[in-house]
Design a binder for these strands. Sequence first.
DNA 1: AAATAACTTAATATTAAGTTAACTTTATGA
DNA 2: TCATAAAGTTAACTTAATATTAAGTTATTT
Lengths: 227, 227
Amino acid sequence: MNNAAFKILLVDDEPDIIEFLGYNLKKEGYEILTANNGRDAIEIAKKELPHLIVLDVMMPDMDGIETCREIREQKGLHDVLIAFLTARSEDYTQIAGFEVGADDYITKPIKPRVFISRVKALLRRLQTAASTESNVEFGEVRIDKEKHSVFKGETEISLPKKEFKLFSLLCSKPGKVFTREFILDQVWGDEVVVGDRTIDVHIRKLREKIGENYFKTVKGVGYKFEF
Amino acid sequence: MNNAAFKILLVDDEPDIIEFLGYNLKKEGYEILTANNGRDAIEIAKKELPHLIVLDVMMPDMDGIETCREIREQKGLHDVLIAFLTARSEDYTQIAGFEVGADDYITKPIKPRVFISRVKALLRRLQTAASTESNVEFGEVRIDKEKHSVFKGETEISLPKKEFKLFSLLCSKPGKVFTREFILDQVWGDEVVVGDRTIDVHIRKLREKIGENYFKTVKGVGYKFEF
DNA sequence: AAATAACTTAATATTAAGTTAACTTTATGA
DNA sequence: TCATAAAGTTAACTTAATATTAAGTTATTT
């Protein structure tokens, strides 16, 4: 998927900002849609289903937070990526934007470089499927990506980085057997070389923390998560 | 707002389930409405505007997903909280339920404790979501934006700029882990380059002033505020 | 301009995460 | 069923990340 395949909707009441951002994004090959108020933004979003919406927080009539809330209510836009634009001087009061489901928060004044890289980072999420939704549940086990922890019933189990990665990987397809080779590649990366028993030890930790019978060993092949 | 102020609509074709859930929720003080099919559920929801609707996915005639979709189309019910009930054995392909705007997904068999705590967590959203404007409160901690200070019970704690910003950011979504990168970006901005330990020191100050256990470190990831 | 407070940094300590090593147990197929 | 390769286990070790403290800067206030 190259950039041309990505649609980005820019929403701001100041045409200058729109033009500035639009220019920079177009240069990168993105398809740009624009709106100068919340109402229009919602209409366009419904029709066009963009991949990312960049919303100015401060807008007359209907502000970014409210617009975001309404967008999130639309069918098909439940987990569209939304980034807020805000002036640095503005107080953080509005960061409450996270409550309505902001994916990122970009502060003005905007530097093209920084902006582009933030946009890229956001869109990268789409590539790695399902990484957007923060809550997945299997039986009484629930993963909360945002909290970086796992709930077993009502108890929260906070997992360290590697364990969380390993667990997420196994959960990404319950029942599927992941080979040791694949696990190493995904969780540790191909440049790092770790010993043979390292995976075992991490599996041990997960079994300890989450439960013995969730992780099944398939000898000679690998591990799988079952519930 | 105590529990009595919350209305919960339970929808399931099995009267046993309704009774079981209703009994447990009533014990907690919630006001309970019930329906045994999707059609009725929609009618009751329109009239009563409950705060939360618990919907069984598997129902004859009109299933939970469809019911949810129609509920979401009603005026005034755009952001009513909806939780699905599903049997564990059912394939989790239905996580598609999230697409129609489910807020949570609860699996049977249902354990009262777990169920209650999930309901509470959902309803807590209403509390926090509404308080965007001026003052936010978490447990015994209250942020007063105008005064630029934090109240812990009766005592006022006046925070300097950076500390206040950092605190506001973390509080903007309790439980969410904020990465160091993101914190730097939001609190310091992308032009200022400050050392890595600076964040630690500010966290230290907050822990000193507000309380050790409000701020949790997620090693290798970042920090989060919890209450 | 002092005085005070806010903020950053640097140096060191502490801690938890991650890895390895050494040994034990288990599954499987000849 | 026995040999053996694969996986399990535990504790010791190593390393990376964060905590802490104090000292050094830079702002603010009076």
